[in-house]
Write a protein that binds this DNA or RNA. Structure first.
Length: 715
DNA sequence: AAGCAATAG
DNA sequence: GGTTCTATTGCTT
């Protein structure tokens, strides 16, 4: 989750204002020489709840809780007034508030989309936007402030919103014109978020990220606060414990406690040498800096994610068959997301968590391996073939960790694609050029200099759509201006489209696809591997999947089959239809026969949201292509053979893969499915994700990376 | 490159 | 702090 509305307040203590910071030895390379930075932190109010209330206004007046598994991850203010808090168990919540309205929040799609719209909106004003979870954003508006200061004399500047410890402050506004300007910008942006997206938020204005984040929560719902440098010590001292300091997590908190340090003050006063003995010089310095409200970290715009993963946790999983099914389920979802992203994963990782009464959390183990190019290509292409091969890769990795011959007890499985490469890149020589220039740290100074093209306020006032468009334009402009040295090549529209989320619709236009065979073709010409299978499907073929599976796994599957042969009858109608959809959402799917018309149905079925029309179109071709394919594989090899085939297929197993599994295994799967004896204790979460709008980000490869750097790094 | 640890929301 | 699912970064090998 990423909810953290109320509470949170961290502290730092000490007496340093950033003015002092400048003189410190730890001063970062790119620190501005003359003036301090102006950093903003935005935090959307109970984000998930707000999104749900927008989707269903009727919920506004009622106590609303967003449920995930068995806990309330967040709730609206009506519910909070009745004593609910985030992360409260559903039972406790209902006890406190019987009339509580619960909305399932496992599907993060809507939240993710809205989250990116917010970031996108902010980016239209200032390129230096760093996301922190779904509901928080940092902005470095230093350049914007300075530009505006030049335009308008700072004389009559007044602050917008609160000023931390205002009462006890002697002077203020006129002494900090730049922060005052920052507060005006914050107010403007909050208003933009409200008018364009309908979301209220809190904002913090300060001279660094740490302080901006700390102040943003001082006045809770829908308000903003500015922290003046002279109040740094105060806000730090106000924190109730070291854990409240952003950057000091569970582990570090424990280690500090072991040193006898509990409060911010304790850390501030602790001998640096001793601290360094425990954490090393660098970490020690950073920790002590944090305790003093000093934070040199830069606002680093993050592009598209560097990895995509899907995972599920459960009470117990102890059979290879279950693992196979779960992995397939996760992979199917992940591949769908990967396909939308457009980039090609070069490495695959499987992570598991073994049951452990003690030390519940940290027992994750993982194994990874490179993804052969031809397979990676299929993933991006949307070919279902890849599933079988990835599945076998996954099972091999699984074997590296688990001895399938001895009992095991897993409580989590995760699949991950990383090392994402842009399609068009081709890894040319230029690639190194881009990857070289530390994609990471870019001095704020240089960043700011590149942002001179930032536009003024009030430019984005239209509807969300207009705003997106607008953002698009401004970004284009900025890019062209601030990226002279970049051997930019392809157009940026695609990326923006994705980022903006609204239009994202069409994927084809993207340069990356030029190399790839058009989806439509795929539609009529199933990829190689599958063709042959179809030909000799009737018998007990065991093509792709089974064939690729590690021998020991094959063995086990076969043996387990013999052992557990059930007399399952088939029949169930609706489920069998589920098979049509390529995305294996176990759930409900369509209930109508596999007709070509139901094309988009499958996709939308997977995500219950209704506002993703645009995105759906993006995958329309993808899904229809697969539907076509599945129709072939399922419909053409029906009756005859002994396998369950098209009519019978566990709703939680991908039909295509299922059809390619050996009959024995199919039987077993069916058997289990019918008995509903799924071993998953916990209401196996749904894994939903799939952020249609979310992807964008620079890969290490030239092609898109180029664009992304233009957008996000401005360097 | 692979695997783990820490942090965060 | 717990909980769930991601994601990033840095350390170690």
């Amino acid at each position: 989750m990423d909810i953290d509305d109320e509470d949170d307040d961290w502290n730092v203590s000490a007496e340093s204002s950033d003015m002092f910071v400048m003189g410190l030895s730890s001063d970062p390379v790119g620190e501005a020489p003359s003036s301090s930075r102006v950093i903003l932190h935005f935090d959307l109010d109970c984000f998930y709840a707000q999104v749900e209330m927008i989707r269903n206004p009727a919920l506004r007046n009622k106590p609303l809780g967003i449920q995930q598994k068995y806990i309330i991850v967040t709730c609206n203010y009506v519910a909070r007034d009745q004593g609910l808090t985030k992360l409260m168990s559903v039972t406790d919540a209902l006890e406190k508030c019987p009339q509580l309205v619960l909305v399932k929040g496992e599907d993060l799609t809507h939240y993710r989309e809205m989250s990116y719209k917010v970031t996108e909106l902010l980016m239209s004003y200032c390129p230096l936007v760093e996301r922190l979870g779904f509901d928080e954003n940092f902005l470095d508006v230093t350049e914007m402030v300075d530009t505006k200061m030049e335009q308008a004399p700072s004389t009559e500047l007044t602050f917008s919103g609160h000023i931390y410890n205002e009462e006890s402050l002697a002077a203020s506004a006129s002494d900090h014109p730049r922060l005052a300007m920052g507060s005006l910008i914050a107010a403007e942006l909050r208003e933009a978020i409200k008018s364009n997206l309908g979301l209220t938020s809190c904002a913090g204005v300060a001279t660094n990220k740490l302080l901006a984040k700390l102040v943003s929560g001082t006045f809770k719902p829908n308000q903003q606060t500015t922290l003046l440098p002279e109040s740094t010590a105060d806000i730090m001292a106000s924190l109730s414990g070291l854990r409240k300091v952003p950057g000091i997590g569970h582990r570090t908190g424990q280690r500090l406690k072991a040193l006898g340090l509990l409060t911010v003050r304790d850390l501030q006063c602790f001998p640096p040498a001793e601290l360094a003995r425990e954490f090393g010089a660098a970490s020690a310095q950073r920790l002590q800096n944090l305790s003093q409200g000093i934070d040199d970290s830069l606002v680093t715009p993050a592009g598209p994610p560097q990895s995509l993963s899907d995972e599920d946790s459960f009470k117990k999983m102890s059979s290879t068959t279950e693992v196979l099914k779960k992995v397939e389920e996760l992979l199917t979802s992940l591949m769908e997301r990967m396909h939308k992203d457009g980039r090609q994963p070069a490495t695959f990782r499987l992570t598991i968590r073994r049951f452990s009464a003690t030390n519940r959390y940290f027992s994750r183990e993982s194994r990874q391996c490179p993804i052969p190019n031809h397979i990676g290509q299929k993933i991006t292409t949307g070919s279902c073939d890849a599933l079988a091969q990835l599945l076998s890769m996954a099972m091999k990795l699984f074997q590296k960790m688990i001895d399938t011959n001895t009992p095991f007890h897993l409580t989590l499985i995760n699949v991950c694609f990383s090392n994402l490469q842009s399609k068009s890149d081709g890894k040319g020589s230029i690639t190194s050029f881009f990857t070289q220039r530390s994609p990471k740290k870019v001095t704020s100074v240089s960043q700011q200099q590149d942002n001179l093209s930032v536009k003024g306020f009030s430019t984005c006032t239209g509807s969300p759509e207009n705003c997106s468009t607008f953002a698009n334009d401004t970004l284009d402009v900025r890019v062209s201006r601030s990226t002279p040295p970049m051997p930019s090549e392809q157009k940026q529209p695609p990326l923006l489209r994705k980022f903006i989320g609204t239009p994202l619709s069409v994927k084809p236009p993207m340069p990356e696809w030029t190399q790839v065979p058009a989806v439509p073709n795929e539609l009529h010409r199933p990829s190689q591997p599958l063709e042959p299978d179809l030909s000799h499907l009737p018998p007990d073929v065991d093509p792709d999947v089974f064939k690729h599976l590690p021998e020991s796994i094959q063995q086990e599957l076969l043996s387990s089959f013999q052992a557990g042969e059930r007399g399952d009858r088939q029949g169930t109608s609706s489920q069998s239809v589920t098979a049509i959809s390529c995305n294996q959402k176990p759930t409900n799917q369509l209930t109508k026969p596999p007709s070509k018309q139901s094309s988009i149905a499958a996709h939308s079925a997977g995500s219950d949201n209704g506002d993703d029309r645009a995105k759906q179109t993006a995958d329309q071709t993808f899904f229809s292509a697969h539907r076509e394919r599945l129709r072939i594989s399922c419909a053409e090899q029906p009756e005859g053979n002994s396998r369950a085939s098209n009519t019978e297929c566990p709703s939680n197993v991908d039909p295509l893969v299922f059809s390619e599994l050996p009959p024995e295994l199919q039987q077993e799967l069916l058997s289990e499915w019918k008995q509903q004896k799924p071993v998953l204790k916990i209401p196996s979460k749904k894994l939903e994700r799939t952020a249609p709008t979310k992807d964008k980000k620079a890969t290490t490869k030239a092609g898109q990376a180029n664009n992304l750097l233009n957008y996000f790094k401005s360097n």
